[in-house]
């Protein structure tokens, strides 16, 4: 069995108290609990404070462009479906510049674990509002208060046909790690939005603020994550904020639909030039 140090490459240098520490810890715990081989894992990150995760988490890593985690991760998964592909984005990466890819990855149900670390602010660029920032929030980009209504990623994923929709809290590492484990075993696109306070630029949505609002879906014995309408109702609750697995369903993953043989790598197998077959195809141009 592995332990979480097997995935620890380096101590992070995020701001002291950053929610990303909780996400990092939960991720390592889940990987250890699932006994994952770091060499069979690819972590694709976007641009933002979360993007440093590759420097700390031991696995194959790809740190690409702002907002393009999901297309890159989709390409990796299709090229080698045997890999566990984890995408990590911030709220800006996922819901602002990368929004288009988000709903399409959800509808395709491509086999990626997608973690959106939501701190409701642009941290790396020094504190502008993000698409999840609340109306009225004062920041360097909104000195008179934000004039825009926030959007809700899990709701979008639900509407787009997402098959695994969960929300966790970086202040509850054990619970978040449990969600990661479930996501790693899900066939298809698994969204985990991790509420994650930014201690430097967001003085409103603090650990305390989140703790007052959140409750565990799992504590409600009447809640079953198979009912879309029920999931929607919980996501609509503006006074309280449930965390846990909102919704899960089984649909064939994209890689199984689009690849001729999901067990045969398109990266290395069957590349030899099949002259007779190619010549037969050329006959169509006679």
């Amino acid at each position: 069995m592995k332990n979480k140090d097997d995935y620890h490459l380096e101590d992070p240098s995020w701001c002291r108290g950053c929610g990303l520490f909780g996400v990092f810890d939960a991720f390592k715990r889940a990987a250890a609990a699932q006994d994952l081989d770091p060499e069979r894992m690819v972590v694709v990150t976007g641009i933002g404070c979360h993007g440093r995760l590759n420097n700390y988490f031991r696995a194959y890593g790809f740190h690409g462009l702002h907002g393009r985690v999901l297309p890159v991760a989709t390409g990796v998964k299709l090229s080698n479906p045997g890999l566990l592909v984890v995408g990590v984005s911030g709220d800006g990466d996922a819901y602002s510049i990368g929004q288009g890819h988000f709903i399409h990855a959800a509808r395709r149900n491509v086999g990626i674990v997608y973690v959106v670390v939501d701190n409701r602010i642009f941290g790396l660029t020094q504190g502008q509002v993000s698409p999840t920032t609340e109306m009225g929030f004062v920041s360097i980009s909104s000195p008179y208060g934000s004039k825009e209504f926030p959007i809700d990623g899990p709701k979008l994923a639900l509407a787009a046909g997402g098959t695994f929709i969960a929300r966790g809290f970086s202040g509850n590492v054990a619970h978040l790690a449990g969600l990661f484990e479930k996501a790693m075993n899900h066939r298809g696109f698994a969204l985990i939005e991790a509420l994650s306070p930014c201690v430097t630029h967001n003085k409103i949505n603090t650990y305390e603020w989140f703790r007052k609002k959140i409750y565990l879906l799992e504590d409600d014995p009447g809640y079953h994550p198979g009912d879309k309408m029920e999931a929607w109702t919980r996501l609509q609750d503006s006074r309280r904020m449930p965390i846990g697995l909102f919704y899960q369903e089984q649909k064939p993953p994209f890689e199984e639909l689009v690849l001729p043989d999901v067990h045969k790598s398109i990266a290395r197998e069957g590349l030899e030039v099949d002259v007779p077959r190619l010549e037969k195809i050329m006959e169509k141009f006679r």
Partner: peptide, 27 residues
């Protein structure tokens, strides 16, 4: 028929990034 895959992406941003992801992973 040649053990390959074709994807229609949501836009060209996705097309090029997906191509980069797949090529990085070896296809």
């Amino acid at each position: 028929h040649f053990n390959g895959a074709v994807v229609q992406t949501e836009d060209e941003l996705a097309a090029m990034n997906m191509a980069v992801g797949a090529a990085y992973a070896g296809a």
